[in-house]
């Protein structure tokens, strides 16, 4: 079997600040095959976005990749020279950002921003680049793309802007797309359209999609696999139905319990007590220990990642192996 499209192995991205080393990403591993969707889930500050930027090689100082490998079709991106990395960025590996109101440059027309992307990676004429941009806009469902090309970002709604951003990401039919909460800023109906669009395009082009989100319902509908992050570490991973139906890690269970659901109408919402610890001084051992209802003295030792069910791993020494009604 050939190498998977994207394989992240023991990735560590640390920020060397004056106050100390912030281990934003600390030992994260996951694999995404062509045409599959990996949902990367976690609270704010759990390191999901930094993981995404690490894959693109866009971690800014004082941060850098301190260890691990990011294998893209077998090539390690973590050690790739910047010039080669730039050749892949936007070309083979693309990214979609969270806030569509902020991702397009307000003073440049849509055509400028699309054509430059085409020309950055393909030796084609300006006219052909324009043609491709127009086709990409059509592909993501933007009506009258010819006119829209000449518009400025502020003339678009949020949903339209996100479509434009997706069109830009699709220009070179990349092998990997990292989507960082691309629907969080949009309202539900638009969110649904964008999700459907993403799913369709990935299946069509065989793109490996890393979908970063804190919204479990999005992951449930879209992803094939899921990795739950907490304080820079993956605490549980596995096939999405398995993880959501029978979570092993108490944190995953808490996360699922925090989603308002119709079945539990009338009951008070469950929540995870406490808050995410500061990444500057993480407690030794399991980072979730202080909020965990099952914590015990053994949790002071760093728990290893272990496979408790076929394909389903968790970083916990006393997982919920019994059936749990979530």
């Amino acid at each position: 079997m050939s190498a998977p499209t994207l394989e992240v192995r023991n990735l560590r991205t640390h920020f060397f600040t004056r106050g100390g080393v912030v281990k934003a990403v600390d030992d994260v591993s996951f694999t995404v095959e062509a045409g599959k969707v990996m949902g990367l889930v976690g609270e704010s500050g759990s390191g999901k976005t930094v993981t995404g930027f690490s894959i693109l090689g866009l971690v800014d100082a004082p941060g850098r990749i301190a260890g691990g490998q990011i294998l893209f079709k077998g090539r390690d991106l973590a050690t790739l020279p910047e010039a080669e990395m730039r050749g892949l960025r936007g070309n083979r590996i693309a990214m979609i950002f969270q806030d569509p109101m902020m991702t397009l440059n307000p003073v440049l027309r849509i055509d400028t921003q699309m054509i430059e992307t085409v020309l950055a990676h393909a030796k084609v004429s300006r006219e052909e680049a324009r043609q491709r941009s127009r086709d990409a806009l059509g592909q993501v469902g933007i009506p009258s793309p010819d006119e829209r090309l000449k518009a400025y970002p502020h003339q678009f709604s949020g949903g339209m802007r996100q479509r434009v951003a997706i069109a830009i990401a699709l220009l070179h039919k990349p092998d990997v797309i990292v989507a960082d909460e691309p629907t969080t800023a949009l309202d539900v109906t638009i969110q649904g359209q964008i999700l459907a669009e993403a799913q369709k395009l990935c299946a069509q082009f065989g793109t490996a999609l890393v979908w970063i989100t804190h919204d479990l319902s999005v992951v449930a509908g879209l992803a094939d696999d899921i990795a739950v992050m907490y304080a820079g570490k993956v605490v549980e991973s596995g096939p999405v139905t398995q993880v959501l139906d029978a979570p092993l890690h108490p944190y995953t269970l808490g996360l699922i319990g925090s989603v308002p659901s119709r079945n539990r109408r009338g009951e008070p919402l469950r929540q995870i007590p406490g808050m995410t610890p500061s990444l500057l001084n993480l407690p030794a051992g399991c980072a979730f220990r202080s909020r965990c209802p099952r914590a015990e003295p053994g949790c002071a030792e760093p728990p290893p990642m272990a496979e408790y069910r076929p394909g389903q791993h968790a970083r916990c020494i006393h997982p919920h192996q019994e059936a749990v009604a979530a």
Binding site: M95, F97, L104, Q113
Partner: peptide
């Protein structure tokens, strides 16, 4: 950042 992510 997005411009950089486009590989410019």
């Amino acid at each position: 950042k997005f411009a950089r992510a486009k590989g410019l």
